[in-house]
Computed example of a mutant assay.
Amino acid sequence: MRFARFCQALSNWAGSPKTFLTAIVLIIAWAGTGPYFHYNDTWQLIINTSTTIITFLMVFLIQNTQNRDNDILHLKIDELIRATHEAQNATLGLEKMEARELRKLRDRYRALGESSEIDVEPIHDDGAR
């Protein structure tokens, strides 16, 4: 649980405008030191190593937060399906289906939507609420 909170906090920080601005400033500072170091291999290695390490760690951070958000979304949708009497409760176990079965089910729902007699008016956003 502590790891999930840590990842969420780190993800929020990493996605903030301040962090992006800090990264831009660091890159500009690094680029500005190029003439001083004569654009040598060590100068290039600093940015390459730094960005590689940060990218490597961010992949795991992003995957963790995406998995958590995905699980939360699925739980909310599952609860809506469970609470709606007209819903197909069989859809609660879709994650156990193979890709071929999911495609067949998607095609079935698409056909239901196309054959529906309900005419849905497009929503026009005129700014009024």
Rank of each mutant, 00 (worst) to 15 (best):
T22C: 09
N89D: 12
R2V: 11
G113H: 05
E79K: 08
C7N: 11
G93P: 00
G15Y: 09
E98T: 09
S116N: 08
R2F: 12
A14E: 06
K76H: 14
T22F: 04
L112E: 14
H85A: 15
F6R: 04
Q66F: 10
K18P: 13
M1I: 07
L45E: 04
W43E: 01
L94Y: 07
T52I: 14
V25S: 06
A9N: 06
A9Y: 04
I62M: 05
L102P: 06
W13G: 12
A4I: 12
R2D: 14
Q63E: 15
N64D: 10
E95D: 10
K76C: 07
V25H: 13
Q44D: 07
A99G: 09
A14N: 14
I53M: 14
L102A: 15
W13Y: 06
A31G: 01
T91L: 10
L26W: 05
F60D: 15
D41N: 11
T49L: 11
E114I: 14
K18I: 14
I24T: 10
R103A: 08
H74Q: 14
F3I: 11
A31Q: 02
T91S: 09
E114M: 15
I123C: 13
N70P: 00
R110F: 11
L21Y: 04
S116D: 10
L57H: 08
R100A: 15
F6T: 09
S16Q: 03
Q63D: 10
I77F: 03
M97E: 05
T49Q: 08
N40F: 02
I28E: 08
H74A: 05
L57F: 05
I77Y: 02
R100T: 10
I53N: 06
E101I: 09
I54Y: 06
D107V: 11
I72R: 01
I53H: 03
K96A: 07
E95G: 07
Q8H: 07
R108E: 06
E98H: 15
A128K: 04
H124C: 01
F56H: 06
A111T: 08
Q88V: 15
T52V: 15
Y36C: 05
S116M: 03
A29R: 05
F3H: 14
L80R: 08
H38T: 11
Y36D: 02
I28M: 07
T51S: 12
R100M: 13
S16R: 01
T33C: 08
A83P: 01
F37M: 03
E121C: 10
L61N: 02
L21S: 10
D69V: 01
H85S: 13
N64Q: 10
I62S: 06
G127P: 01
Q44G: 07
A111K: 04
A83S: 12
T52Q: 10
L112A: 12
R68S: 01
A14Y: 08
D126S: 00
R100P: 15
A87M: 06
R108L: 15
G113K: 11
T91A: 12
Q63V: 08
R68I: 00
L10Q: 12
